[in-house]
């Protein structure tokens, strides 16, 4: 596939991940990153959280959320590296590392989420 045909698909994934990250991450960071570990709010019991995460719909949704957020990261970080830090020389390597990282992360997500379902 030529670059021109791939770019809109990458942009679409970036964009979908951007929307999901904007809508879902703030509440998740507040709850799981701060409120539960620091005891501002009583953390959910293991049984309850296991039941929520183990529901196939939750797992499927989280897989989509994780994979698209990683695609969002890959696309944005790729441009951060070569426009921001002027690393135009290693374009190919950066592209492979970013999108490769997102694909690898999505596979890991599927495996980890499958352990709870």
């Amino acid at each position: 596939m030529t670059k021109r045909r791939v770019e809109p698909i990458l942009w679409l994934l970036f964009s979908a991940g951007g929307v999901l990250a904007a809508v879902f991450l703030p509440v998740l960071v507040v709850l799981f990153g701060l409120a539960f570990p620091l005891g501002w709010v009583t953390p959910p019991s293991h049984d309850h959280l296991h039941a929520v995460l183990g529901h196939p719909l939750t797992a499927l949704f989280l897989f989509g959320l994780f994979a698209l957020c990683l695609a969002h990261w890959a696309h944005r970080f790729r441009y951060t590296l070569y426009d921001g830090l002027q690393l135009k020389g290693s374009k190919g390597l950066i592209t492979v590392l970013c999108y490769g990282g997102a694909v690898l992360g999505s596979v890991v997500s599927a495996v980890v989420l499958a352990t709870v379902v």
Binding site: L49, L70, H72, T80, G105, S109, T115, V116
Partner: peptide, 19 residues
């Protein structure tokens, strides 16, 4: 975007621990 990716990793670690 780097912090978005970090939090995905964090949530994956949480999921793994719960499992």
């Amino acid at each position: 975007s780097v912090f978005v990716a970090w939090f995905v990793v964090f949530l994956l670690m949480l999921t793994y621990a719960v499992g």
